[in-house]
C-alpha cells in the first residue's frame, strides 16, 4: 500500500515542481516529513546532503533516496525499497514529461502567448519564496544542535555562514563545500 501511496505522492510532487530541484526539496519535505511522516527531518537533511554530492539531477536523486527510505522505514524488505525508489523517480518525471511534450507540440504551432508569460513571471517569483521556506524549515536544532554557547551550535553556525558565503558569492561547487564540511566535522566533532 505504501508503494501506491509513494507513487501518487511523487506524481503530485513532480507536477508542482517549478524552478528545478531546489523547489522540489520543499515539496518532498512537506510530503514525506510533515504530512506522511515517512522519515524524520534529520534523516531528510542527510538524504539532501548525499543527493547533492552524488552525480545527477538533485530532484531525481532526492526522489530516489526518499522513496527507498520511506519504504524501508516502514519495515518492508530492501527489494521493496528498491521498487519504491524506482516508482518515486518515475512518478516524479511522468507528468512533467507529458506536459513538456504537450507544450512542445503546441509551441510548434503557436507563438509565445502573453498570458502564459505572465503566469510564469508570477511563478518564478513564488518559487524564490518556496526555496527560502525549504531552507527556513531546516533551521532546526536537529540540523544545528541546541542553540547556545556549545561547540556543536557554534561550529554549525560558522559552517552555515561560510558555506552560504562561498556558494552565493563565489559559486563554489557544492561538492567541494560538502567535502570541506565533512573534513571539518571529522576534525572538530
Amino acid at each position: 500500500m505504501i508503494l501506491l501511496k509513494l507513487f501518487f505522492t511523487f506524481l503530485k510532487i513532480g507536477i508542482f515542481t517549478f524552478g528545478g530541484g531546489y523547489s522540489m526539496i520543499a515539496l518532498i519535505q512537506n510530503e514525506v516529513v510533515e504530512k506522511q511522516g515517512w522519515m524524520s527531518a534529520q534523516e531528510f537533511t542527510d538524504i539532501l546532503a548525499i543527493s547533492q554530492m552524488t552525480p545527477g539531477p538533485v530532484g531525481i536523486n532526492t526522489a530516489t533516496y526518499a522513496g527507498y527510505t520511506a519504504v524501508v522505514n516502514s519495515g518492508l524488505p530492501v527489494w521493496e525499497g528498491v521498487v519504491g525508489s524506482l516508482l518515486a523517480s518515475l512518478a516524479v518525471i511522468l507528468l512533467p514529461v507529458a506536459a513538456m511534450l504537450l507544450v512542445l507540440r503546441y509551441l510548434s504551432h503557436h507563438k509565445d502567448n502573453p498570458l502564459v508569460e505572465k503566469v510564469f513571471q508570477v511563478l518564478r517569483l513564488t518559487v524564490v519564496g518556496l526555496i527560502a521556506a525549504a531552507a527556513l524549515l531546516l533551521l532546526t536544532p536537529e540540523s544545528f544542535g541546541a542553540p547556545g554557547l556549545n561547540k556543536q551550535f557554534l561550529v554549525s553556525v560558522a559552517l552555515f555562514v561560510a558555506v552560504f558565503y562561498l556558494s552565493w558569492r563565489h559559486r563554489t561547487s557544492p561538492i567541494y563545500l560538502i567535502i570541506g564540511s565533512a573534513i571539518v566535522g571529522l576534525l572538530v566533532f
Binding site: 524552478g19 531546489y22 526539496i25 534529520q42 537533511t45 542527510d46 539532501l48 546532503a49 547533492q52 513571471q121 518564478r124 517569483l125 518559487v127 524564490v128 526555496i131 527560502a132 525549504a134 531552507a135 531546516l138 533551521l139 536537529e142 540540523s143 544545528f144 544542535g145 556543536q152 561550529v155 554549525s156 553556525v157 559552517l159 552555515f160 555562514v161 561560510a162 558555506v163 552560504f164 556558494s167 552565493w168 557544492p174 563545500l177 560538502i178 564540511s181 565533512a182 571539518v184 566535522g185 571529522l186 572538530v188 566533532f189
Partner: peptide, 26 residues
Amino acid sequence: SIFMALRPAVVALIAAPVFRLAKSAK
C-alpha cells in the same frame, strides 16, 4: 560526526540559490 557538520552546510546550500534566483526572477 561528518553528518553533524554536513547538516548546517546543506541548509546553507539551499539558502544560497534563493538570492541567485531572486535576481533572475527579477
